[in-house]
């Protein structure tokens, strides 16, 4: 990857092979494995995703390049055989993942892990003259302003007894 400072994963054991999940035409997932690193306070997302002490992230092939640009990402060889531990951690057996319902069920953690991966990445910064602000901080500030404006303009529900 050419990224300096990539740490080795804590547990380098290979992922179990799950051939029955391979080759799905629309997803074809691959596992991008993050080394154990700083806790970003995303434990809620991580509860269902921690696999033997690792953080893991699923991604579509089209997003793999973007994820691969992150210098703290360690890519495993692409292949659907690496999906098994994640599915198992989420509580669905690999056998159940064969049917369509279970297959759809694990799509939401894919989105969740994509968001988590974006939050774990180094932030982009915006620079206007002396003003320097990261995009996440700017989003939080704009969200607070939006909440403030909404609190002023949205009518407060009134008690029927007080209407008179």
């Amino acid at each position: 990857m050419g990224c300096p400072g990539v740490r080795e994963p804590v547990d380098p054991r290979p992922w179990p092979v799950v051939p029955e999940l391979g080759g799905h035409p629309s997803v074809d997932p691959e596992v991008v494995q993050l080394p154990a690193g700083p806790d970003k306070g995303l434990g809620i997302a991580r509860v269902g995703l921690a696999v033997r002490g690792h953080q893991s992230i699923l991604t579509h092939p089209g997003l793999a390049t973007k994820a691969g640009d992150r210098c703290d990402v360690r890519l495993r060889p692409a292949g659907p055989s690496t999906l098994g531990p994640v599915v198992g951690t989420l509580g669905w057996s690999t056998t159940r993942a064969r049917d369509g319902l279970a297959f759809q069920m694990w799509r939401w953690p894919v989105l969740l892990t994509l968001v988590m991966g974006a939050l774990d990445s180094p932030a982009h910064y915006l620079h206007w003259g002396p003003i320097l602000v990261s995009v996440p901080n700017l989003i939080v500030i704009l969200t607070m302003i939006l909440i403030f404006v909404l609190a002023l303009v949205i009518p407060f529900p009134k008690d029927k007894d007080d209407e008179s």
Binding site: G41, V47, A50
Partner: peptide
């Protein structure tokens, strides 16, 4: 898992605490 969840509850409560306090 419960510990990570509790840790996250603590963290995100702080985030909401500051958002509410600033507004």
């Amino acid at each position: 898992s419960v510990g990570l969840f509790t840790n996250s509850v603590h963290f995100w409560s702080v985030q909401l605490f500051f958002v509410f306090m600033v507004v």
